[in-house]
């Protein structure tokens, strides 16, 4: 007897969700990981007796919307968590079969490898325009873009603002890691004041480099935007909130209410030059004060905005 392979989990995912703000893992979390390891071990050996197998309960498994392709992301990068949340949302809303994703240009350019749904890869910054073309032609599909901060807030500024202004019925997942990850750590439009990057080697001096852009705040002023939230992928509690926001964003699209976006404060330990754990602190201590979390715009069923 083997257990359903879908119930196996890539252990590399677990540490990030289990960091719990740097505190030692709780007993419950440890137990969850152990159980998963037992499932793995069971499948490897296949020799445990049926009785003990039936005692095992699958508490954590790969979402059906995810492939089993190993991530290409750096250790400690939260792109993977964001992917998983999207996959869970597609599963829970039962829309995988009509979902069409848009990979953009950045570290997530290969994001299409990890989702079991149709995908298009868009030019740098243009995903909202490409998504517009798809969604207008296939209104019953569920269209989402996955964009970095360089992609969305710099080169793709026009496309994102106008997709929102048109109230395009699409969902945008915006990964704000305050850096150009893929090209090796250059300054992004979201780079913090005084943050050192390869193109702001002495830190971002506003006199020469200007200020970080707050996309959620900016887009919430656009009439056509119906749901805008900012979350942080830093600990289980915040990850759970991120999931909720993502579900709401997709629901906004399913209800035909128009443009939705979830901005996710995300880690780039590689280009920030910090450890995976320090990266979580970095988001908490340095990013959140500049990029406050929460819902910036919610259009309810009566069309009332809060």
């Amino acid at each position: 007897m083997t257990l359903d392979p879908a119930s196996r989990v890539r252990l590399s995912l677990v540490p990030f969700t289990c960091l719990e703000g740097g505190k030692p893992m709780s007993d419950a979390t440890m137990a969850a990981i152990e159980r998963v390891e037992t499932v793995e071990a069971f499948n490897r050996k296949g020799s445990l007796d049926q009785a003990s197998a039936s005692l095992m309960e699958v508490v954590f498994s790969r979402p059906a919307s995810m492939t089993d392709t190993p991530f290409h992301y750096c250790p400690g990068c939260t792109h993977g968590i964001a992917h998983r949340l999207i996959a869970e949302a597609l599963d829970e809303l039962g829309v995988r079969e009509r979902a069409i994703g848009l990979a953009s240009v950045g570290c997530s350019v290969f994001s299409y490898r990890y989702f079991k749904c149709d995908f298009q890869q868009a030019a740098h910054g243009r995903a909202p325009a490409v998504a517009t073309g798809i969604k207008r032609c296939l209104p019953d599909s569920v269209v989402f873009t996955y964009q970095g901060d360089g992609d969305l807030a710099s080169i793709g500024m026009a496309e994102i603002v106008h997709a929102a202004a048109r109230g395009e019925n699409i969902t945008v997942v915006f990964i704000n890691n305050a850096i150009y990850g893929m090209t090796g750590g250059q300054m992004a439009p979201t780079t913090l004041v005084n943050q050192k990057t390869t193109t702001s080697p002495n830190g971002r001096d506003p006199k020469a480099y200007g200020y970080p852009i707050r996309m959620s705040e900016l887009l919430s002023t656009v009439e056509g935007a119906s749901y805008i939230a900012r979350v942080a992928l830093i600990n289980p509690a915040e990850v759970r909130k991120a999931k909720k926001a993502l579900l709401k964003a997709f629901q906004t699209q399913l209800d035909g209410k128009g443009f939705s976006m979830v901005e996710m404060l995300s880690s780039c330990p590689t280009n920030w030059g910090v450890s995976a754990k320090e990266a979580m602190d970095w988001i908490k201590e340095r990013m959140i004060p500049v990029y406050p979390l929460g819902e910036f715009k919610v259009r309810d069923d009566e069309g009332v905005i809060s």
Binding site: I100, Q120, A122, A123, A129, V130, T132, G133, I134, R136
Partner: peptide, 11 residues
Amino acid sequence: NMVYGAAGAGV
């Protein structure tokens, strides 16, 4: 790019 999306959707 909108045309890219629409063409990719088979239209």
